[in-house]
């Protein structure tokens, strides 16, 4: 997987530049909807709850997140409103950019480690 070299926060989306020349534009709503934390993830397991999650997110006020690096492997997005718990591995961001299912089609089962 290529390395992320640049992340530009725009009003409603962000542009990701990877070192192989690929550029992705990911809407903030998509990022938020793909939050990998233990409270958002299970909501994506069922279509209905997933849509509800989406709906909640779309009704949040527009804002630019604060972006922080987590170690050398992930980013976190801090929002004034809504969930800021997720740690997004670069793989996840890449998948989102490539419009692939970031959960890889797997349902989230709490405690199933």
């Amino acid at each position: 997987m290529p390395q992320l070299t640049r992340l530009e926060r725009r009003d409603t989306d962000m542009v990701l530049d990877w070192d192989d020349g690929t550029n992705h534009t990911i809407p903030y709503d998509d990022i938020r909807h793909a939050c990998p934390c233990a409270s958002c993830s299970p909501q994506r397991n069922e279509d209905e709850t997933s849509m509800m999650l989406r709906h909640t997110i779309e009704n949040l006020p527009r804002e630019k997140p604060t972006v922080r690096t987590i170690g050398n492997y992930a980013l976190s997005f801090e929002w004034v409103q809504g969930c800021s718990s997720g740690i997004y591995r670069f793989e996840r961001l890449w998948k989102l950019g490539e419009k692939q299912d970031p959960d890889g089609g797997k349902t989230y089962v709490h405690g199933a480690w």
């Binding site: 390395q3 992320l4 070299t5 640049r6 992340l7 926060r9 690096t69 050398n72």
Partner: peptide, 9 residues
């Protein structure tokens, strides 16, 4: 912990 050379704007 060394930053991966990522520019965040």
């Amino acid at each position: 912990s060394s930053s991966p050379g990522l520019e965040i704007i």
